[in-house]
Design a protein around this nucleic acid. Structure first.
Lengths: 225, 225
DNA sequence: CAAATGCTTCGTTCTGGATCGAAGTGTGAA
DNA sequence: TTCACACTTCGATCCAGAACGAAGCATTTG
């Protein structure tokens, strides 16, 4: 009751099941219409409208009119980060939404998280790199070792470009489907790009799933398994 | 209602005013007793007990028994990050808790955020660096310019050590007291360390406040103001 | 123009959960 | 042993806010 910002208001908004479902749906990054979000949340359009209004008011969502549609999207990266963080906490606490849809299996296997590889394949990759000594941890920081650098140079990653950037090369990202870390950062991004470039995998057009080709999956396991 | 973790449960927990107050109090990093947290939240011990039980159950809090006291603390960095993120969102949305306590002024002026300088002084520093062309933005990324590097070398920052690390040199950090960004990343950390080394400022022992000495404040304004 | 569609506003109902008094459990002190 | 203290559990109350039917507004289509 003393200093600081009122986290309760925002957290309470995220904390309603209907709104949480909407936000989870919007975490794909796509903008969705009010009706789509109502369906996603399992409520009537009236109810959804109220929810969306509240979330827009506190700048969690962004609203764009287009014809007779209203498109809603996650406002910015800061909001997305918080929601991703909550997903991590929820997963670690073992809190999962009950009904699992058909697309889930694919998402759990491999999906994009921001721009790097997440899901089982992502965790597998991370573990393998660490085990082989390509990555090393010092405190909170994650470093790419020299042998790791050599390995990925062979794999076709252009480090001269990556090292220009000031954003971190390697980071651990905690995500929901496995309760473990996978690799993010510049390298994480570059690896996913390369996987797609090699035609080992492709992005699904209407979800965040990453679909491995048969050959791609075999090659991936061969390279990192 | 389909895939993924249930963020609603956790967010709803954080979203209750009493619990949010407790969590805000615990963000200092200290462990507090159930009674202290009850007072902080403005509820009776019975009510507090229920709240604390729920938060412990979903692994937001950590409970430690000691004699007839129970000490509660934020469970880990992941939880702290989410709460800090929520504070950022709340501040940006203009949602502040009404009553402002006595220690607030110091915290708003200057405090540590992870290991870098936040608060008015932090924002001031960031603005000055940007204005002078020591920092430049390219898209999401923040870069230290060559003149900036020269400046901070003169200031006594050892870049040979900093550049070893893979974590980012410069990042923008959104925090609650000003609705603006301040500098984090390796450089942000190094600057705060250097300020303390120079005796321009010192960490307060029982809060996250950074106390500037009279001479230190003058020197800071002279250097960055 | 009218009709259909997409969304919002209003008014009402109803329930989950916060709250506290009272009583119970466990620990430490006298 | 008895008392005081710290905390928890139980039971009852009570209210904020989620939900939806109905009606209203705006835009596109026919």
């Amino acid at each position: 009751m003393k200093e600081g910002p009122d986290i309760a208001r925002i957290a309470a908004l995220i904390g309603d099941p209907a709104r949480a479902n909407m936000l989870t749906a919007l975490m794909s990054g796509k903008a969705l219409t009010a009706a789509e979000l109502a369906a996603e949340a399992g409520v009537t359009p009236q109810t959804a409208s109220v929810h969306l209004g509240k979330m827009t008011e506190v700048h969690i969502l962004h609203k764009r009119r287009q014809g007779r549609h209203r498109y809603y999207a996650i406002r910015d990266e800061n909001v997305a980060d918080v929601i991703a963080g909550l997903m991590g906490l929820a997963e670690k606490a073992g809190l999962t939404r009950t009904r699992t849809g058909p697309r889930d299996a694919a998402l759990r296997t491999a999906r994009s998280c921001y721009n790097h590889l997440a899901g089982d394949m992502g965790v597998r990759l991370f573990d393998a790199l660490y085990e082989r000594g390509y990555l090393s941890r010092s405190g909170e920081d994650l470093r790419l070792t020299d042998t790791g650098r050599d390995f990925f140079t062979d794999f076709g990653i252009d480090f001269s470009a990556l090292e220009q950037k000031t954003s971190p090369m390697c980071r651990e990202c905690l995500d929901w489907s496995a309760r473990r870390s996978h690799l993010s950062g510049n390298l994480g991004r570059a690896i996913l790009d390369r996987l797609i470039e090699l035609n080992w995998a492709a992005r699904d057009t209407n979800s965040r799933a990453i679909i491995f080709t048969k050959r791609g999956k075999a090659a991936f396991i061969d390279a990192f398994g």
